[in-house]
Amino acid sequence: MSHPALQIEALSVTLPTARGIVHAVRNVNLAIAAGEMLALVGESGCGKSVTAQAIMGLLPDSARTHAHTALFNKQPLLTGKYQKNIAMIFQNPMATFNPVLTIGYQIAEPLRLLHGYSRKDAEHETVRLLERMQIADARQKSLRYAHEFSGGMLQRAAIAMALACKPELLIADEPTTALDVSTQAEVMALLTELRVEKNLSMLFITHDLGLVSHHADRIAVMYAGEIIETASTSSVLDNPAHPYTRALLAALPIRHSNARLAALEGSPPDLRFPPPACAFAERCAKAMPICIQQSPPVVEQHHAARCWLHNTGHTHE
């Protein structure tokens, strides 16, 4: 990677709750180049959404965020200010829109407030954006309300709203989880098109390794608040280095195979008391004595894995 647009080093987020302080994100490094799509993959509760919200500045005031470096296009992040050049789409498109305002009004809002469009220009741009999202009869549709849209159409309108911010980085937080398989394919195709067209950087959050295999350039796998493996998509899928990534892949049904699915037993650690060493050691079939004593080193390479098995730094078998 030449020069990453998004550069985050040693990001940590703690969230105070009634039952103790949760160490939701621990020492996370992320880098995304212009026009690149990085998929952040992990189970629920592993900290992927909190990472995204930290970048966006959407965390509650009580959250403590700390990072060694946090830059986007050389502008500092985590300043508590609104990030003009970053936009986000969310899992549930129904909750993304205000139910009492028209879709068109809400898409035009960032155009008028952030980019100083007149009401008329904003209207034109809104219709154009909706058309770009392959929404038929866009002018009429822009006067409709969220409940009159189907899930897939609404998610496309949400992408239009995100694009109205004219972002350079688009964060997509499980944007297709609530959609059908066929609609999911449409939304993914659209996102990929837009990424190429506008040279958008994308941080794509999901728990579905299958979904990102066709679309992402690189994959970062997150577990218990840490990124445990980062590499190009093909490298992660073909040669997963971390036992957790292997377990995730083994849990997927494979074509022409009736072999029993390898379910991962146990549950992730309680992040109020994060384990001092490897967080996965407890569930890992290959755990060694050192795994519960010392945190594994992060080897920054083409294929980085945070695991004692790869201490030599050589990750491919």
């Binding site: 629920s44 390794l209 699915l261 379910a263 991962l264």
Partner: peptide
């Protein structure tokens, strides 16, 4: 459910 948990449930049903 998460992918790893999905596998647990599917195995169980089978």
């Amino acid at each position: 459910l998460d992918v790893s948990v999905q596998a647990q449930i599917i195995n169980l049903l089978k």
